[in-house]
Amino acid sequence: MTIVLPVAIVGGIGLIASVILVIAAKVMAMPADELFDKIRGELPGANCGACGYAGCDDYAKAVAHSGAKTNLCVPGGASVTAAVSAAMGVAAESAEAKYAVVHCSGNCYATDAIMDYEGKQSCAACNFFYQGKGSCSHGCLGYGDCIAVCQYGAISIVDGIAVIDKGLCVGCGMCAKACPNHLIEVIPASSTVYVGCSSHDKGAFTRKVCKNGCIGCKKCEKSCEVGAITVTDNLAHIDPEKCINCGTCVENCPTHAIVTCASRCEAANGKAS
């Protein structure tokens, strides 16, 4: 019975406080901001910050009162853009769907570790320790810091590297911020070919430490018909604006450093099923 009194006292105080708050909210009610409420209601509420604002509330406020663009919500995509535009009474600009890719192919078949890392099992911690456990200091560490921040379950670790399922990814870019090696980039959904490597090391060194690394041979640059690929500092980069996803570079790459998202997603799905 000794528990009854404390519970009653705390509960009673809480009840009195809540009654006072309700009365205060009624008495001092502000005229509701309908526009804000409407827009906020349309947003997904993930608070990912992909729009560049501090969260969904902040973005809704910016749209309603400071004329922010209506198509900035990446996770919401076209449907949210349309709904927000309708609420504001402006024509919807198309929001381009995006997804994240991991610029690393150094899985356990391609590269080795130089140490048995037994510290805190996180990429950030491991990366602080002599630039990570891998023989390639630029590669994916595979402890899943990106998985921890992904709210959509789109990322899995397959054969020691992070793989993102395009079907589940909404392109919010939280993982890109979490990756200590900055391997993850958010690219337009229409672009399906990307470079699976982030190493700026010299070709000979990259070759030595990873079978799948970009060695900067420029074969892709030469073979690309639309000039979408440039090789700078021993690393190929594909411009998604120019790329037509023809796949020529994928075939020509001697180390298979250029990959298609289809092959990666298959790996991710294979792991999931």
Binding site: V10, I13, G14, A17, S18, L21, A24, A25, M28
Partner: peptide, 13 residues
């Protein structure tokens, strides 16, 4: 509990 309620009250006001 009391302080939280108070702050909330002050914020509303």
């Amino acid at each position: 509990l009391v302080i939280a309620a108070l702050v909330q009250l002050i914020e509303t006001a």
